[in-house]
Simulated assay, not measured.
Amino acid sequence: MRGLLSFLRRNPLAAIGAALLLLILLAVGLAPLWSLLWPLPSPIAIDIQAKLAPPGAAHWLGTDYFGRDVLARLLHGGQATLAIGLGVVALAFCAGVPFGLLAGYAGGWADLVMMRVVDAMLSFPALVLAIALAAAFGPSLGNAMLAVSITLAPQFARVARAQAQSIAARPYVEAAIALGVRPPRLLLRYILRNGIGPLLVQASLALGSAILQTASLGFLGLGAQPPWPEWGADVSANLAYLRGAPWVVLAPGLAILLAVLSFNLIGDALAEWFNPRRRNAR
Rank of each mutant, 00 (worst) to 15 (best):
P139N: 02
P183W: 12
A240Q: 10
P32E: 03
R158P: 12
A251V: 13
L146M: 11
S209P: 07
T214I: 11
E230S: 06
G195L: 03
H76K: 01
V97K: 04
R68H: 00
A53I: 04
N280Y: 02
E272C: 04
A120I: 07
F124M: 08
D234A: 06
D268Q: 10
A237K: 09
L21I: 00
R170H: 13
G223M: 07
R161M: 08
R73C: 05
L127F: 15
H59L: 08
D47A: 11
N11M: 04
W34A: 09
A58T: 08
W38R: 11
L112C: 14
V181R: 05
V181D: 11
H76M: 12
G138R: 01
G223D: 01
A106T: 15
M114S: 15
A19V: 09
L220W: 03
R2N: 13
L13W: 10
K51R: 15
G104L: 07
P12I: 01
L239R: 11
V249F: 02
F263A: 06
W228R: 12
D268T: 10
I48G: 10
L200K: 05
A176K: 08
A160T: 06
A271H: 09
V235L: 09
R68K: 06
W247D: 05
A153G: 01
A281Q: 13
L187A: 01
L61T: 05
V89K: 03
R158T: 09
L146I: 08
G208E: 11
S262W: 10
P125I: 07
A255N: 04
P229V: 02
I24Y: 00
A90C: 13
L5M: 14
M145A: 08
L102I: 15
A178L: 14
L40Q: 12
W228H: 12
L61I: 02
I84K: 00
R182N: 13
A178E: 09
A90Y: 05
L152T: 01
S209L: 13
G142Y: 00
L265D: 05
L257W: 10
R158G: 04
L205A: 05
S35R: 15
W60R: 01
L261R: 03
I211Q: 11
L186H: 08
F66K: 01
P252G: 02
L133G: 02
P125N: 00
I84W: 07
I167T: 03
L220E: 07
Q79P: 04
G195C: 04
A203H: 12
A271P: 04
A130H: 07
L192R: 04
P246Q: 00
F274G: 04
L261A: 14
R282F: 00
G208M: 07
L30G: 12
A215T: 05
A160G: 09
G232T: 03
V113A: 15
N280T: 08
G218L: 08
R158V: 11
V117I: 15
A168W: 04
A169M: 10
V113Y: 14
M121N: 07
L270I: 07
L8T: 02
